[in-house]
């Protein structure tokens, strides 16, 4: 079942091309990994999926992206899109609020006021990212008091509290130690049951561990996309092979 269709997508910042004529499809409830060297357009692509790149004033987009057959530019309004598509950034970015308030932020924005409902959402989201046991006694303390790994899982919970259908990850473990990274990856695998996930990462090994399919971006172009195991053992394109083998990067 196709969840997301990208057709002929191009992205520019002023004169610089970030993405050239990109077309791909994302299946429902899969984890799609996106790898490639810096400046290959991975993050630009990711941020177009929830139209976050529109915040950058000199960004221009062309082409089409469809979610369940509906255009995200023309048929789905911005606020609904941001509910459907959640994002976890590279640096953990808790809001300057308590742990509870961070997670309740999204639901409250949508008008949810019922305290017991909010409690339920908070608990469910924290459990889904394997954070609940560690923080259940201090939900009202500042989110800044958590460790890096915990903050990142908090951000995942926060995204989950919005009940999205798709979760985007922009190099989520880049600042984390191996143990926290393992916990985040475990959460991702668990979330496959209910969510479609797209993971941008500079760490090819992470893609190998976690992604069902992987896409290789190079200088704004999609070079190759396919089953992860196959791509890592016998990629079709030489450039993919060179990158994965570490001959450039």
């Amino acid at each position: 079942m196709v969840k997301i269709t990208v057709a002929g997508l191009s992205i520019w910042y002023d004169e610089q091309t970030a993405i050239k004529n990109l077309s791909l499809q994302v299946s429902e409830k899969e984890i799609l990994g996106i790898i490639g060297p810096s400046n290959s357009g991975k993050t630009s692509f990711l941020r177009t999926l929830n139209r976050l790149n529109e915040l950058t004033s000199n960004c221009k987009t062309e082409g089409e992206i469809q979610l369940d057959g509906k255009s995200i530019f023309k048929e789905i309004d911005l606020l609904s899109l941001r509910k459907l598509v959640g994002i976890v950034f590279a640096l953990p970015l808790p809001l300057p609020l308590s742990i509870y308030d961070n997670i309740a932020y999204g639901p409250r924005l949508r008008g949810e006021k019922n305290k017991s409902k909010l409690d339920g959402i908070v608990e469910k989201s924290l459990k889904a990212s394997y954070l609940f046991d560690e923080v259940k006694d201090r939900l009202n303390t500042s989110a800044f008091n958590l460790s890096g790994g915990q903050q990142q899982r908090l951000c995942i919970s926060r995204t989950l509290a919005n009940e999205p259908e798709i979760i985007l990850y922009d190099e989520p473990c880049s600042g984390l130690d191996p143990i926290s990274t393992a916990k985040v990856e475990e959460a991702m695998r668990d979330l496959k049951k209910n969510y479609t996930q797209i993971l941008v990462t500079n760490n090819t090994k992470q893609a190998a561990r976690v992604a069902d399919r992987t896409a290789f971006f190079l200088m704004g172009e999609l070079v190759e996309i396919g089953d992860t195991t196959k791509m890592f053992t016998s990629p079709s394109d030489k450039r993919t092979d060179d990158y994965i083998a570490g001959r450039f990067g």
Partner: peptide
């Protein structure tokens, strides 16, 4: 940090909500 505002926007806040709930505090 711009990231505070982005975090709020990514969660579905409107521009004004992000400003008065996150940036101003």
């Amino acid at each position: 940090p711009r990231s505070y505002k982005e975090g709020a926007l990514a969660l579905g806040a409107t521009h004004w909500q992000a400003i008065y709930r996150v940036t101003i505090p």
